[in-house]
Simulated scan of single mutants.
Amino acid sequence: MTTLALTLSDSATMLRRNLRRAARYPGLTLVVAAVPIVMLLLFVHVLGGTLGAGLGGPAGGRPEYVAYVVPGILVLAIAGGAQGTAIGVAMDVAEGIIARFRTMSIARAAVLTGHVVGAVVQTMAGLLVVVAVALLVGFRPDATPVEWLAAAALLAVTSFALAWLSVAMGLSTKTVEAASNLPMPLILLPFFGSGFVPVESMPAGLRWFAEHQPFTPVIETLRGLLTGTAVGSSWWVATAWCAGIALVGYLWARARYERRPAR
């Protein structure tokens, strides 16, 4: 077999291993959907009428706010999945599994790739649950099949980028507890962007941050694709952010994996 074939085979083995472990620890998968669903219900049913009225829609604003908030909830779910990925990697480090893999005759890229692809699969499964609940509470997207595919692709790319970053975080921490705390800023970013309220309503300093942080263009692109509004330039800004985060996460994760001594 060629080197590429061996790497793909080893990566598939690592992916199966991570998916089986996910089945044994369903809590790490459920957090991808559970927390965003709770936030969705809270913002729609408790705050949606008031917040939605500010969007200028009828019926108390709640239907309009559902359409507005769902893209932010989906990005929040991806950020929550990054925390679970970091925890899973840190568990492998703490238990010595990463060190054992380093001594085995397997492709080095396969270990990290298995974690990343497994994280994307888990996150996308959680997003399906979130979308289903959103439809139940009144989300009525205007997306065409092509726009749905584009939205799914953007969600997958965002998940891929954050997966590499969270794998690097898991490799960089000494304890599982530290790994659970390190991705917390990612979970907060949707709140300090356009995920829950328009950035135009924010004070000047916070508005500047919201407009220039990575999640805002992702959310705006998703909102445009799902609700039929103009996407504008946000799609390529979102793509650039995802590519940059993925590259930084990959280089960081590879450096930490190569540096960590075998036990």
Rank of each mutant, 00 (worst) to 15 (best):
19 L>H: 08
193 G>H: 00
143 A>C: 04
1 M>A: 15
91 M>Q: 15
67 A>R: 15
147 E>Q: 14
7 T>E: 11
174 K>M: 11
213 Q>S: 04
194 S>W: 04
105 S>R: 15
31 V>K: 10
30 L>T: 09
18 N>E: 13
94 A>L: 09
50 T>M: 11
43 F>P: 01
173 T>D: 06
76 L>V: 06
120 V>M: 06
236 W>N: 04
23 A>M: 14
78 I>Y: 00
173 T>I: 07
260 R>Q: 15
140 R>D: 05
53 A>G: 08
203 P>C: 13
123 T>A: 12
164 W>V: 04
175 T>H: 01
23 A>V: 14
251 L>A: 11
204 A>N: 13
239 T>K: 01
230 A>E: 07
126 G>W: 05
150 A>S: 09
74 L>F: 06
135 L>D: 05
122 Q>P: 11
51 L>Y: 15
228 G>P: 03
180 S>K: 05
230 A>T: 08
241 W>R: 05
202 M>Q: 05
5 A>T: 14
143 A>T: 01
178 A>I: 10
6 L>C: 10
177 E>Q: 11
131 V>D: 05
118 G>E: 08
212 H>C: 00
219 I>V: 11
181 N>M: 14
128 L>A: 15
19 L>T: 06
4 L>E: 04
64 E>R: 10
229 T>I: 02
140 R>F: 09
145 P>D: 02
96 G>D: 04
206 L>V: 10
65 Y>V: 06
246 A>R: 02
91 M>L: 15
102 R>M: 09
118 G>Q: 10
11 S>H: 07
62 R>H: 12
155 L>A: 15
124 M>Q: 09
137 V>C: 14
9 S>G: 10
171 L>D: 02
116 V>R: 08
246 A>H: 01
175 T>I: 01
72 G>L: 09
95 E>V: 15
210 A>H: 04
13 T>S: 11
257 Y>R: 06
153 A>V: 07
245 I>R: 01
25 Y>F: 09
68 Y>S: 13
24 R>P: 00
255 A>P: 00
200 E>C: 10
187 I>A: 05
160 F>T: 03
159 S>K: 12
91 M>D: 12
150 A>Y: 01
190 P>Y: 12
125 A>C: 15
25 Y>I: 14
172 S>C: 06
134 A>K: 14
234 S>R: 09
91 M>G: 09
222 L>Q: 04
161 A>N: 00
52 G>S: 12
167 V>Y: 00
83 Q>N: 10
93 V>L: 15
223 R>G: 00
239 T>C: 06
166 S>Q: 04
61 G>Y: 14
202 M>T: 01
126 G>N: 06
185 P>I: 02
202 M>D: 00
101 F>H: 13
17 R>Y: 14
72 G>S: 12
49 G>I: 05
